[in-house]
Design a protein around this nucleic acid. Structure first.
Lengths: 230, 230
DNA sequence: ACTTTATCTTTCCGACGGGTAATATACGTC
DNA sequence: GACGTATATTACCCGTCGGAAAGATAAAGT
């Protein structure tokens, strides 16, 4: 419609210039733009026309990479889920007490929640998906929930965590973390890492069987870093 | 379309029977049905036709009580907000230490979150509202957030709560509570009151400056009741 | 009984947006 | 240089749903 200046964000389709690029790169660009727009406006208000417009292409061109709007939504979610699955695998691989694993999970999950694809895990509505994809999403959520509960149960078993109801505790912790996806703003006062540090301490301090050696972020606020959570 | 049996839930419009009732009663019935349907299917997927159908009337009849779908959405939200404003006023009137007030707020807020109108506070999307109504909603959310922060700050000032960042602490607590609106099922294993009891202890135990006299729900799980939170 | 008023129904419209069909353009390959 | 394939565009279809217009019905007042 209107003559827009080339969009400022990076799009592989610079208007009428070298067009040919790797297919996957373009697919990813669609997902990045879509997740951003879906979060910004909500899935239903966001139109494929606008997704396309931001990429300097037209709506039907999107159908070279996706079969439907719903598939785009699902793939946005899948990226976030894969990341979570990834760092959970890492935590499992490194091992440790239940408390240590829980703290790592909280930290990584909080940081993820501050990204677009992470927030999409909680801000998108399952009911917008096909039955098939909805099943996959439910399985993913269930898996994350099981992991939280397992680390808590592990911690109770190995004595690092005070006895409590793993289910309710997991709900309480996951609730706090998921909520980050609703209020976090990249340009806000606190960085994602700072928030993750803060939440890691706050959400687990009440659980530790014995007072834990204070982490960097809790006492000497000198260098908030991922190392602080070990 | 299809000949449905008279809906099982209570509707003031029983098909073709005594029609005249108080206007407000009908308006409320619309809101009850609408909030239920909106939560069930999501605002965009829910149609006014279906709202009307559940009430044994037709879509245009709704326009006797509301000017638009958006107005219905807003009013659903307003009911939940008024309840929160109500019990906050009660807590303020009764007074007490910051910790005591915070615990009452957590308990009441958790219980409210387990109701339809309560859940609508967090499950509806502001962006579906007109600019005017969105402003009102934002003010309401802001007010609740301020209350959480104030009680925490009060508690720090009067020594009942350990020093902490009121903003982050409020976010963490409110996140846990708001999340209830996403997972609570009336027919689930725990009652709303039981959940409220549980969350009241779990979310504030880490904050108390000195170990608080254990409440009924925390140790002797004999009678979970509202009195336990004083 | 006749009118008035509120309420409800039948019928329809118009906008919006996802998705498709037909077509054009450019690149790699022979 | 011609051809095939991938990728893009223009133009269009069509279902859905919020909302309006206009007509019907019943209770209430005179």
């Amino acid at each position: 419609m209107d003559a827009r200046p080339p969009s400022s964000d990076s799009s592989p389709w610079l208007p009428f210039e070298s067009r040919r690029r790797a297919r996957d790169e373009k697919r990813d660009a669609v997902l990045r733009t879509a997740v951003q727009l879906f979060l910004e406006q909500g899935y239903h208000r966001a139109t494929l026309n606008e997704v396309a417009e931001r990429l300097n292409i037209t709506k039907p061109a999107l159908y070279n990479y996706f079969r439907s709007k719903e598939e785009i939504l699902f793939e946005c979610w899948a990226v976030g889920q894969e990341r979570v699955d990834g760092f959970i695998a890492g935590i499992n691989a490194r091992g440790g007490t239940g408390l240590v694993k829980l703290r790592q999970l909280v930290h990584a999950y909080a940081e993820n929640m501050a990204t677009d694809h992470g927030a999409s895990l909680v801000r998108f509505d399952q009911r917008d998906l096909s039955e098939k994809n909805r099943k996959i999403v439910r399985a993913g959520k269930k898996s994350i929930d099981r992991t939280f509960r397992k680390y808590i149960a592990d911690g109770i078993a190995d004595g690092s965590i005070k006895p409590c109801d793993p289910k309710m505790t997991a709900f309480a912790i996951a609730g706090s973390l998921n909520w980050i996806g609703h209020w976090f703003q990249p340009d806000g006062a606190m960085s994602a890492t700072a928030i993750a540090d803060e939440f890691t301490d706050r959400l687990t301090e009440g659980l530790a069987a014995r007072p834990l050696k204070k982490t960097a972020s809790a006492v000497a606020k000198k260098k908030p870093s991922r190392e602080g959570i070990r």
